[in-house]
Design a protein around this nucleic acid. Sequence first.
DNA 1: CAGTTCGTTCCCGGTACCCGAACGAGAAAT
DNA 2: ATTTCTCGTTCGGGTACCGGGAACGAACTG
Lengths: 257, 257
Amino acid sequence: MPLTPDERPGRTIRSVQIAFNIIETLQERDRIGVTELANELGHSKSTIHSHLRTLEERKILVRDGDGYRLSLRILDMAADVRDQVGNYDVIRDEVEALAAETGEIAQFGLEEHGQVSYLYKATGDRAVVTASQVGTQQPMYSTSLGKTILAYLPPERTEEIVRNTDFEAITPQTITSPEELYDELEEIAERGYGIDDEENIEGLRCVAAPVRNDETILGAVSITGPSSRFTNERIHDELPEYVTRAANVIELNTKFS
Amino acid sequence: MPLTPDERPGRTIRSVQIAFNIIETLQERDRIGVTELANELGHSKSTIHSHLRTLEERKILVRDGDGYRLSLRILDMAADVRDQVGNYDVIRDEVEALAAETGEIAQFGLEEHGQVSYLYKATGDRAVVTASQVGTQQPMYSTSLGKTILAYLPPERTEEIVRNTDFEAITPQTITSPEELYDELEEIAERGYGIDDEENIEGLRCVAAPVRNDETILGAVSITGPSSRFTNERIHDELPEYVTRAANVIELNTKFS
DNA sequence: CAGTTCGTTCCCGGTACCCGAACGAGAAAT
DNA sequence: ATTTCTCGTTCGGGTACCGGGAACGAACTG
């Protein structure tokens, strides 16, 4: 298995690619040894060995029993990430409050690499269970968070993201063309909130509101629930009020970084 | 500045070292650009550029404004780390409970790379503030957690760690020789809990108890407080009871992984 | 519009990276 | 006890490829 078929522009460093292949493999299947990794990744044992040694010296991995796993240093790095994004405490408190008062799932997400990344997730007492997890990514065009963020990003950035998007019909309702998407973005910008009507997961609807600081968008807040509770009526009346209120509180407490 | 003066055994991969130098620099000082990184790390701009491109493609970094920062994917990795260690929920609940009932700092730590890494930290309502943070590391020989873990590790592993330890007098009370340390480890094994009497930070004392599963040690729980509240009397009577009780609860709820 | 400072690209030389193969240490099997 | 796996580790060699320098382009500033 050759690595990458050489992305068009720019160079990328092979050893580093290998290192992160190891890390990612170790992320999903812990406690693996040298030989197994070598087979899995298609490299010689000696190559993998040197890499493991390097990563262990850097305290990214630890030997645990027979095999390696990621080290707790990752937790420290995660804390720094939260600091760097800024306003984590405000966001957490407000998302928790939103989940508590609605009983549903509340989330905060922001754009990274042309996708939505979840920064925080809170589950209310009657919330449905979903697979989404903090730090993971979802497409922009199929989520309320993503579409709402797109609607408020600088136009050139929005275009760049849309241009690099492969539209895929995740559910029957998913938006599958740039034209449809741009229409909806306009709509969102007009009314101030975005909606996902079973476009990402069947049976689930979401409502999201942008969080902005001085014209630049930081991210968005959303609530997610089953279509049975998110009726056509509530989704354009009561629910947008909740999320915009939460978004406003975050905006007001935002400190410049 | 040459990288490492070539560690004695084994080879380590330079590109990966550079990549993690970048990551670590970005961890402490966010939003840095290519040129600044190049100067800081002593590499050419083109080298740094290729690395940044690689790391960005791997979604480890994001462009944010002008400059890079670590991406939210780190948060996802952190979640996986907690899963891999196992029993995170039990540990969190019990450490929180311990902090709540004592009012002090409570922590759970385990051994990695011959040091203590903190997995969880909870602060009670009258707890002193310390710099220690989840995911960071401390020496084994100067902390109650470290010494307690050493006392219950397999003897050969303990020896290996002690052999590779540089003893340093962090405070006037710090243990500075293997002999002293081994004496204390025996004491700990006898009475079942470990103590740090201002050996790591002046003015602070800690008490720790081991968490074991079927003869193998998973880590240790500790409480930390000012010497004024951690009197000679309480530190050998009331306080050990708290931590051993917490440790026992964790042990009982431990699932095999 | 000149001047500065970014980020980016290109090519080239030297090296250190990856591989293959051999070694050593356990454990399991007979 | 001896064999036979399989694991992690070490070692040298050939060459891909990584890092450096310099030139280019773009964005700001004066």
